[in-house]
């Protein structure tokens, strides 16, 4: 066990865990930020996506000792003072989530995409959205990304 400080959603958080613990479980079990999900633990499903210095990464395989100097953003950090970000609002407007379990990871990638690309094309959306959604919300994820970027809705 080691006392370490990480920056999560703009706040310094001090925890006492094994430095080899994956960030996912520190966020969830120690810090109570349960929005970030466990789906596979083997870097395939993207349910555990967070931003590390602005890039979407898999928290299931990022070790604590490797995230001490970076800025971490979780799904709980997407809204500002309770005001949802554009992409979150678009997910509501398109009624995107079904069970919702994959959606935090989906949102982290979708938010990243729309922040960096004013008008992502279908091909760019396909390439960026590597998440697994077993409920099959893909059409509504696409529609929400288009809505958030002011593009015409899709079928």
């Amino acid at each position: 066990m080691t006392v370490m400080t990480i920056n999560v959603n703009g706040v310094a958080r001090t925890v006492d865990v094994d430095p080899a613990t994956p960030l996912l479980w520190v966020l969830r079990d120690v810090l109570g930020l349960t929005g970030t999900k466990y789906g596979c633990g083997i870097e395939i499903c993207n349910a555990c996506n967070v931003w590390i210095d602005g890039s979407a990464e898999k928290a299931c395989h990022l070790l604590m000792k490797d995230v001490l100097t970076v800025k971490i953003v979780t799904v709980e950090g997407l809204a500002t003072n309770g005001v949802l970000s554009k992409i979150q609002q678009a997910f509501i407007d398109e009624q995107t989530p079904q069970c919702g379990f994959c959606q935090s990871g989906v949102l982290m990638r979708a938010a990243k995409l729309v922040n960096g690309n004013a008008k992502p094309t279908d091909a760019q959306i396909d390439a960026a959205m590597a998440n697994i959604c077993a409920c099959g919300t893909y059409p509504r994820i696409r529609a929400a990304i288009k809505r958030a970027t002011g593009q015409a809705p899709v079928v």
Partner: peptide
């Protein structure tokens, strides 16, 4: 749905 986009939804896990 709101809780499913802001991370506050509580699943069993």
């Amino acid at each position: 749905i709101r809780g499913k986009v802001d991370g506050s939804a509580i699943f069993g896990l």
